[in-house]
Design a protein around this nucleic acid. Sequence first.
RNA 1: GUCCCCAUCGUCUAGCCUGGUUAGGACACUACCCUUUCACGGUAAGAACCGGGGUUCGAAUCCCCGUGGGGACGCCA
Length: 461
Amino acid sequence: MSPVRVRFAPSPTGFFHIGSARTALFNWLYARHTGGVFVLRIEDTDQARNSEEFLNLIYDSLRWLGMNWDEGPEIGGAFGPYRQSERAPVYREYLEKLKATGRTYEKDGAVYFKLLGERSEVFDEHRKKTVTKVAAAPSVIDDMIRGRVERVEDEDFVIVRSDGNPVFHFVNVVDDIAMQITHVIRGEDHLSNTSKHVELFKAFGAPVPSYAHIPLILKQNGPGKMSKRDQGALIEEYQKRGFLPEALVNFLCLLGWNPGGDREKMPIAEIIQLFDLPGVNQSNARFDEKKLAHMNMAYLLELPADRFVAAARDFFVKHSAAHPTRAALAASEDYFRAVMLLSQPKIKGVEELPAYTGYFFTEEFPIDPKVKEKVMAKGDPKTRLTELIVAVPTMDFSTDATIEEGIKKLANEKSLGFGDYQAVARLAVSGTNAGPSITSIFRLLGGKRTVHRLERFLAGL
RNA sequence: GUCCCCAUCGUCUAGCCUGGUUAGGACACUACCCUUUCACGGUAAGAACCGGGGUUCGAAUCCCCGUGGGGACGCCA
């Protein structure tokens, strides 16, 4: 049994999106699962639409998601070069081979691949033109996910354009032969192309690789598959928004594959161990942002403190143009760390952090009017504030527990509960009703700033 | 239009291959519990086998047809 060699073959003609990432992921997982080789090959034969910027985006995204390639651009390998734009001699050589078999002909300056079978002229209603149909034998695709698929390829097709550039079907097959690819794992949108490819492999006298056509990812709302223009489609966006790559990877794995049973959140090492092609679903999956957000939260909760703080800082640096964000970066490292760790168990995503923690770093934080209305309507918040302003300076601010003691003591004296002070104090120092425990907020702000905010809020009523 | 693929809660899915389940889990939604707010967590509830035929004692599971969804039909990849 020859070792598994798979390839991910993107073309740098647009942003790197969810669907491409998952195709890459399934290839990568299969290579890692089998101990095989993961090849990255850049299909940049469309000179008009390629760009270096998009190419770098592919590299960045793959690396961010943790998919390292064993052969490919920037690292090389025994079957290079790995950019099709640099492989013209290979294509010339293979074209000569094919010409020698008599399976090509030229028309309008382009080279066509000639199918085997009887020809007839037919008017195609859909395309509104007369085409030459070939009564060819069906191509058989033995797909590891879909089983046996039969399709008749019934028209000769272009393999080299009139400008001399070879087209996708040709270079794709040639490179799969030349790079000794054993398994072709790609989106189901390629299933109809596969008959072309099978016929080319056979014409070259090369073994046909095993195919695995994975289901497509559908857009979350409305009809059709997800495209680069749909909400939430771009990998770059998740990176910018501070998603954890391991969460995104875990989520992506579960879109069309699962290990059977109830397991969902799994470390990548375990996924590698369990992943296999027969476990991949046959039906398309709809993308669900909320489930991804939940997965991200689950990973965030478990993230070691240092990594969480680093992720937070990274996000703040990227968004340092905003005012509270800049103020946060100006704060001391210890203070920043303390605030972030206080927020870690409370948030769903790193992107919530600037708004969630803003009041720790600036005096100009907003007061939520709805929360204010609600809090001020209950009990006698003004009196509670006045009492706190007197009591806070007498409290021991060294730990949450001592602050709690202080507030409880005050509450006892007035025959009230902790809760009678909590809501209004929180509103006065943070402007909202969501956040860490009030004792932690007090402690981090310090007695002086706490009193100042209580006084300012009371004065503004 | 032609060809190809697919079909279990709103969504992702387990179960299907090798027929017998109170059809299980997760996200979302709702209620309650926990609670010092907000989250987290816990418990509960609602929620699905696309339709019709067939095979069989018995069909989500096997077969056929219909319907629905998706994809491909480029000198794009």
